[in-house]
Structures are given as structure tokens and as C-alpha cells.
Design a binder for these strands. Sequence first.
RNA 1: GCCCCCAUCGUCUAGCGGCCUAGGACGCCAGCCUUUCAAGCUGGUAGCACGGGUUCGAAUCCCGUUGGGGGCGCCA
Length: 456
Amino acid sequence: MEPRGRYAPSPTGNMTVANAYTALRAWLDVKSRGGEFVLRIDDTDPERNVVTVDSIVSDLTSLGITWDEGPDVGGPYAPYVVSRRLERHVEAARSLEASGRAYWDYTPPLEDASAHKKTKGADRGRTGAYRGNPEPVSGVEPVLRLRVPDARVEVHDRVFGEISQAADDIGEVALLRSDGTPTYHLASCVDDIDMRITSVVRGADWLNSLPQHWLILEALGADPMPEFAHLPLLVGKDGQKLSKREGGLAIRHLVAEEGVPPLALDAYLANLGFPERPDLLSLTELASDFDIAAHNRNSPRFDPKKLRSFTRRWLAEKEAEDSFVAEIRDRAPAVGEDTVRLLLPGVRPRVGTYQEAADLYAFLLASDEAGRDVTPISDEVAARIIGTEPWSAAQLEAAVDSAVPTDAEQRKAMMKAFRDALAPGFRVTPPIHYLLLGLGRERSRIRLGVRTEAAG
RNA sequence: GCCCCCAUCGUCUAGCGGCCUAGGACGCCAGCCUUUCAAGCUGGUAGCACGGGUUCGAAUCCCGUUGGGGGCGCCA
């Protein structure tokens, strides 16, 4: 049977590289096995929903991740937005209660749950897993909880292997809140069954909930039970779970603002947890032999430097000329398309993002003025360069080459002078002949301080 | 505090009892090349957390310690 996998983000913030890391693996896992991929929005906590379905869809799309069913494209198990499936969840909850697999807990709610969560150490004042109070208490609206059978739960995880937990250590997770709405735990399990999900790939921050979810799935009669793969958490520089608040790691920031090529980001993220390949791989190539069971179990760190080496190579070797040109034009609209295309070979090997590429064209936008220090360049040499025929990359390269001295020191000094005069203030630029080519004969003449025949 | 997970160069990783004097990639350093800056090429730097076992033999297996991460009453 072909697997059906899903990615079920909660719209609690912009997608970060950590989300992309998870989504990509979930996608690669089903695609490598010829299965179907479902996008489902897990908006079970209305108070924390801050981003739209559209924003999730566009972030995922920008990364080249596609889905067969989802909130935007529909499908046989619609709707794919959890909050719109409430009736099903409540119905499932009732059946669990009826079969005795769940019960009402009358423990009053914690005054300050968020403060409680932050409490560490002995101050926590509790040991062992949560157990509720089934005796009705007047004035308390109960919450429906999973009843934990008195048996050790053992589940196979495709990445982490056998996961087992004693019954005493498994908390009685909430299924319905006191206001009657379903929690993520219930909703997620019900939806996975309803949508015929056979493969769940998610972050290891869910690993502790696995026994509980397994119990819920069993109690709900899931057949077959889905297989699980938990991913070691992608962590930040500090070694801790990446927070959605870290704006710099938001996909849209990286892609839209910094100009990181999304497919290169995919190649980098997909590589984490696996040995590095000699070639930069596309999504299809990555999917061809993806094996989640071979995934490393320790948490990889997001390393911007390593990312840049992927994006740099991507732009130098794999980016198609037309799309590269389009990206640069978006970021440097004042530069003509022909010019962008003409200088691209000189730009390609020097940049790690589309933005860096666009920035390499900025020298064209400065105003032309003579009077720079062009001391090492004699009037005669400058005039000879300006007189180059035809004004082509190859011809200009040859002209510059024959004009500069052979002595290493002098050559260095003269090249630097050319660069300073043609692209004042720019540290990294395309090669000199590309600067000349981009500026054109007349503007180059002015920048090099060569007087015209008439003026002289 | 309790539970779960993890542990090889700074980072990503190879290694599944002898092939390891621990290999590769990124970073960093140096040299070469070169039409500046980049890129490229060559070389270098740096690691099996610690302690016990098991074994003829351990980075590899077991136990412990330490360290790190994650989770723990109606967030996801």
C-alpha cells in the first residue's frame, strides 16, 4: 500500500527553517515511496492563531513542497482545517467516553498555567505523570481525559527505534477542554485516522506524547496504526529548539528579504542528519533515495555558514540563467535586462544570495564622475582601453590584460586603480572587463578620466 | 523533581568489534594560481565527554557518571 503522509502545522507564527526541515522530511518520506501528501492546518488553539493559511501555503510553495490534498486544493477528506472538523472530534470523544477509554476529570484549572510550565526543579511540587479526579466537584467544569491502561506502551519509531514508557509515566492527556473543544492530541489522532494517514513525520518534541497518541489511536480503533518517525529537533546557535519568534530564521525573511534561493535551502536542510553528497541535489533527486530510517538521531544545528556554501554553489552551478536574471531584476529594477544578462558570468561565482547578486550591479547606478585617483593608469593606457573595438567581454578582457604590467605588484596596484575608478566604493565587484562592459564606452571614459579628442 | 531522547573535529557527518595512525564536507589558517575582490587548486588545523566492564581486540557492545536537549494538569 502506498503511504499517505501529512504535514500539519499550527498557524501560530511564520514558518521557520525548523518547520521547513520537518515539512521537507515528511514530504520526502512519502514522495520517495510514491505516496500522497496532505497539508492540514492544526488550528486547535484559536487564541494563538496569528498567521493565515495563505501564508503557510505560500511559504511551503516557495520551497517547492507540493501536496495532493489540502485546505487550498481540497480533497476527499475535506475540510483540511482542523477547527472545521469539530463535530467529528466531539463524536470521537463521546465514543471514547462510552467505551470507558476516557473519563471526566474534575480537577479545577490551574490559575496560571504558563507560570507553571516555566517552573523547573523541586519547585514544581509534583512527581510522576498526571492523574485526574473523577469525582464530580460542584462548580467545576470537567475536562475529558484519556484513561491510561495499566500496561507498558511500546512503539516503534522509524528514526529513534523502540520507544517505551511505563503506564505510570504516561500522563492522562486532555481530550476535550472544559469548554468542550477538542485538544490537539484528540483532533490530530482523529484526523489522521479519518484522512487515512499511514505515515506521521514530526519533530521530536512530540516524542514524549507518542505513547499517549498511540493509546488514543488504539482506543479509536485505528487500523492499520500509522507508522511514526520523529525527527531530532533542528536547533539554533545556542543548541536549543528554534523559536518561532526568531524572525531571522523565518522562511519568508530568508527567501524574500535575504534572497536565499529556496531550492538551495532545501538541499541544505535535507542534508542535515545525513552524510553530505558530492553533488547539489534537487528535490526530485533527494526524493529518489530518501530513507528516514537512516536519519541521525542527534539534533543538528542550523549553520548559516554551511547554508551559504550551499547557496553559493547553487548560484554558481545550478541556477538557470533566466530565473537568475529575473530574481536580480526584481531586486535591481533600475538595471536593464540585457546588462544583467551580460554581466551574469562575472557575478555568478561571487554570490551567495540573489540580493548579493543584485548588489554587484549597484556600481552601475552611481553617478559618473572623473577625478578619482587613477595615478597608476597612464592617460595612454586608459585611452587605449576606451578605444577597444569591439566593446565585448572577450575583447575588453584582452585589452585590459595587455595594458597592465606583468610585474605582480604593479599589476595589483593598477587593477585596484581600475576597480576604484570604475566602481568606487565597492569592495567586491565582477572582473574589470565586466565593469567596462556594463558601463559602456562613454561612461567608462568619464570614470577613467579620459578626455575626449575635442575637449583635449 | 519525574519521564523520554541524544553524545565522533568549532559545525554537519562517515564509522555498526579488527580495514581507524578515526575519513569527508563547511568554517578557519597557509601556499599556489589569478585581471582587483571573489572563485579555483594544494596543504594544514582540529574530534571518539569521562569511568568501569565484556572481548585476544572497542569510536563501535553493556553499565554508571557527566553533559546537552525535549516533555511533564484543559499550548501545539
